[in-house]
Simulated scan of single mutants.
Amino acid sequence: VRDAMPAGAIKTPLNQRRHDNISIVSVERCGKRFEVACYKNKVMDWKGGAEKDVSNVVQVDRVFANVKMGKFSAKADLQKAFPGKSEEQIILEVLEKGTSQVNTMEREFHRDKLIKQIAHTAAEMCVDPWYHRLFTGRIIEKAMEQLGFSVKPAVAVKAQALEVIRFLKAEGMSVERACMKFAVTFPTLEARQQMRSWVRNHSHKMMSRITSLWCLRQRMEPEVA
């Protein structure tokens, strides 16, 4: 015999889906509010261009009038506010032009992620001039924190990585931009010899930071019988 439900117990309908662990992007048009339910920590990646797949951003492929209540927007309202557009196109437009509320935890998560991206990018672009060794991303990240480098969410990662290198050097850290290395592949042995001759004749005109030319591979054409 099934036990009787205690008095005052609350039953949750099995067909009800609660939208509580989400990030809402919304836009207002024609006196109506249109919302899209997204995964947390994904909206800023989408707006910043780090995330390209919309299926990794949107939880439900529908436009809502109220996400928390689970109320979808009426088709008449969608066509009035977005004439001639499908619901998929409307979702993309809401993501592009809509606004979202970012809580403190989400903001800190994206800031820490941006710091790590900048630090690892800067580490790949610089070396220790005394030992000619690359820095690890953790060393650059720790130096950024200790010396008080402030990141800018609206600026590209590569641009900030270059700024980090200049900043660390100005603060007295032993750091230099890494020299570029490149490989040249020649179709024949004759072409390789011609290139070597050209380098010997023009080495005095080449940039001082290019220290050597690495001929790593030689692809020989098969002999014709």
Rank of each mutant, 00 (worst) to 15 (best):
D3H: 08
A4S: 07
A9W: 11
I10C: 07
L14C: 05
R17I: 13
H19L: 08
D20E: 14
D20P: 04
S26K: 10
V27A: 00
R29V: 02
C30M: 14
G31E: 07
G31F: 05
R33K: 15
F34H: 02
E35V: 10
E35R: 09
V36D: 01
A37N: 08
K40P: 11
K42D: 06
V43N: 02
M44Y: 09
M44I: 15
K47L: 10
A50C: 08
V54N: 06
S55E: 13
V57W: 00
V58Q: 00
V60E: 09
V60Y: 02
V63R: 00
F64E: 00
G70W: 04
K71V: 13
K71G: 04
F72W: 10
S73G: 06
A74G: 07
D77F: 03
L78T: 05
E87H: 04
E87Y: 03
E88T: 11
Q89N: 07
Q89D: 13
Q89M: 06
I90F: 07
I90Q: 02
I90M: 05
L92T: 07
L92V: 08
V94W: 05
L95E: 01
L95R: 00
K97H: 03
Q101K: 09
Q101A: 02
Q101E: 10
V102L: 08
T104V: 12
M105P: 00
E106I: 01
R107M: 12
E108A: 07
F109T: 03
H110V: 02
L114T: 06
L114G: 02
L114S: 03
Q117E: 12
Q117D: 10
I118G: 00
A119M: 00
A119Q: 01
C126M: 08
V127H: 06
Y131L: 14
Y131S: 15
H132P: 04
R133N: 15
G137E: 04
I139N: 14
I140C: 03
E141T: 10
M144N: 05
Q146K: 15
S150V: 15
S150R: 13
V151Q: 01
V151R: 00
K152G: 02
K152Y: 04
P153I: 04
A154V: 12
A154T: 14
V155N: 03
V155S: 06
A156M: 12
V157L: 00
K158T: 07
K158G: 03
L162H: 11
E163Q: 12
I165Q: 04
L168T: 01
E171Y: 12
E171D: 13
G172M: 08
V175R: 00
K181S: 13
A183S: 14
F186V: 08
P187N: 08
T188L: 05
T188D: 06
L189F: 11
L189T: 13
E190P: 03
Q193G: 05
Q193N: 09
Q193P: 00
Q193K: 12
R196D: 09
S197A: 13
S197N: 14
W198Q: 12
W198Y: 15
W198C: 08
V199D: 06
R200Y: 10
N201T: 13
H202A: 05
S203P: 06
S203G: 14
K205C: 11
M207W: 08
I210D: 04
T211H: 08
L213R: 05
W214L: 15
L216M: 10
M220D: 14
E221Q: 14
P222Q: 09
P222L: 10
A225Q: 09
A225N: 11
